[in-house]
Design a protein around this nucleic acid. Structure first.
Length: 426
RNA sequence: GUGGGUGUAGCUCAGUUUGGAUAGAGCUCUGGAUUGUGGCUCCAGUGGUCGAGGGUUCAAGUCCCUCCACUCACCCCA
């Protein structure tokens, strides 16, 4: 039997309805906040990711799906979305137009990692990016958007961790200070961290190895060594979050795994997801547009992991409400023919209605109606057809009444009013 | 990439220790009890390359080897 390859999954209908629910709500909120959708290619030139994410990051050095095409160009299945958004922003000179500076995207990303709960090789993100604004209020707005988003989706109990990773003016001096500090206890650090302290000392901070914990906990923090501009920016972001009653935790050890971040860096976690508990993350990247040949353009963005959001919703038993539906049971050849036409006419009027494809017993058709979760079943047999009437049965209350066939659409409309009133999104 | 656990019906699992004849249960599904009335109950039936391949043996779901997948942790991150 041929199976889906490792780390790639089918999303079956019972789960896909949760995906649709999350995607629909997210897109509505993003549009309300002024974001427009940007649809991007799934494959890009390999150098796009090497240059933006960073050669020495784990993503680039060991997790990318990179392969040569037929003309030996090195291509890569995108491991994240921001690089492509920046590429498109510069390529189409979108900086020249005011109206499109907030973008969102959604779609599959690919990383060659060991699969486990909440982590597959093809995974899906919804991301949002804002270009051209350096103000701290933009950072705050984006974080508040994240809160609104998760709250509307049905996950209000998230934890927001916040930090600053500085800028080209203050990060290098801090790196040196950290490196000097780490040098004193170099031998005590784990092997990984001994290497990291040379290449990328900031990454030592989020090491979970016991040997390193004591050293890390007493390490100088970056917030104490920010330049005045970064410091002011950070304080202003925090002030606006407090003003908005958006809780957050400063995490001095929060370091992102992508090199392009500057200043604000954050991560959203959800308890109960196990080891892979980060459901969203992002930060500011004020120099990336310029590095890709655009004019100096500050930017900030975030992405959320759809698999993990869906897992979190399933974990707390949140299941989107089924659409109200009708089942049409018909008995005998003549009634089935009439029902076939009625089915179409009711669908054209906007009703969600199904009928049995086989001329089976009423019992079996009612069973089908029950399985499909139909609120009402219409019963059309020879008797009803002869009198030009139809039975409408309320499945939940097990009650039924007979109405004139020509009135059925009006009767159903009235029956469905209370159901429709309860539904906000669909 | 490293280490631990697990793979038996569509789903959840027993059986593997100590090899033995047609591999079981519950749920689901189909039919009946109920001729045109679903959910509850009772009865019957359908459904299995026992993860894959190889080996040992008179005999393998059970023992051995290799591989694969899932899962947890490390790692990393969304």
């Amino acid at each position: 039997m041929i199976k889906a390859i490792r780390g790639f999954k089918d999303i079956l209908p019972s789960e896909a309805c949760i995906w649709q629910y999350v995607e629909t709500i997210s897109q509505k909120i993003l549009r309300d906040y002024g974001f427009s959708e940007l649809r991007l290619p799934i494959i890009e030139d390999t150098s796009l990711f090497v240059r933006s994410i960073g050669q020495d990051t784990d993503i680039v050095s060991k997790e990318m799906y990179t392969f040569p095409d037929r003309k030996n160009h090195s291509l890569t299945l995108r491991p994240e979305g921001t690089a492509s958004v920046v590429r498109a922003f510069v390529e189409h000179k979108m900086y020249a137009r005011d109206q499109y500076k907030k973008f969102y995207y959604l779609g599959p990303m690919f990383r060659y990692e060991r699969p486990q709960a909440g982590r597959s090789r093809q995974f899906h993100q919804i991301g949002a990016e804002i270009f051209g604004l350096a103000e701290a209020s933009v950072d705050a707005e984006l974080l508040i958007l994240v809160y609104d988003l998760f709250s509307k989706i049905g996950l209000p109990s998230i934890t927001l961790s916040l930090n600053s990773v500085g800028c080209p003016a203050c990060r290098p001096p801090y790196k040196k200070i950290l490196q000097e500090y780490l040098q004193k206890d170099h031998a005590t650090l784990c092997l990984d961290c001994q290497q990291r302290s040379e290449k990328n000392p900031l990454r030592v901070l989020d090491c979970k190895n016991d040997d390193c914990q004591d050293i890390i906990s007493r390490a100088p923090t970056i917030l104490e060594h920010l330049c005045p501009t970064c410091q002011h920016h950070q304080q202003e972001v925090e002030r606006l979050l407090k003003l908005s009653n958006a809780p957050y935790q400063i995490n001095h050890r929060l370091v992102r795994g992508l090199d392009y971040y500057t200043r604000t860096a954050f991560e959203v976690t959800f308890a109960g997801l196990g080891a892979q508990n980060a459901i969203a993350g992002g930060g500011r990247y004020d120099n990336l547009v310029e590095e890709f040949g655009g004019p100096p353009t500050p930017a900030i963005g975030f992405a959320l992991g759809l698999e993990r959001v869906v897992l979190a919703l399933q974990g707390q038993g949140t299941i989107p409400p089924p659409s109200p539906s009708i089942f049409l049971a018909a008995l005998g050849e003549k009634a089935r023919e009439k029902a076939f036409l009625l089915l179409r006419s009711l669908r054209q009027k906007g009703f969600c209605i199904q009928m049995s494809y086989q001329d089976s017993s009423l019992k079996s058709q009612l069973k089908q109606a029950n399985q499909q979760g139909a609120q009402f079943t219409l019963i059309l047999g020879e008797n009803e057809l002869n009198n030009q009437r139809i039975i409408i049965k309320d499945m939940e209350h097990a009650s039924q009444e007979e109405v004139a066939l020509e009135d059925i659409s009006e009767v159903l409309k009235n029956k469905f009013l209370p159901f429709l009133a309860k539904r906000e999104i669909f």
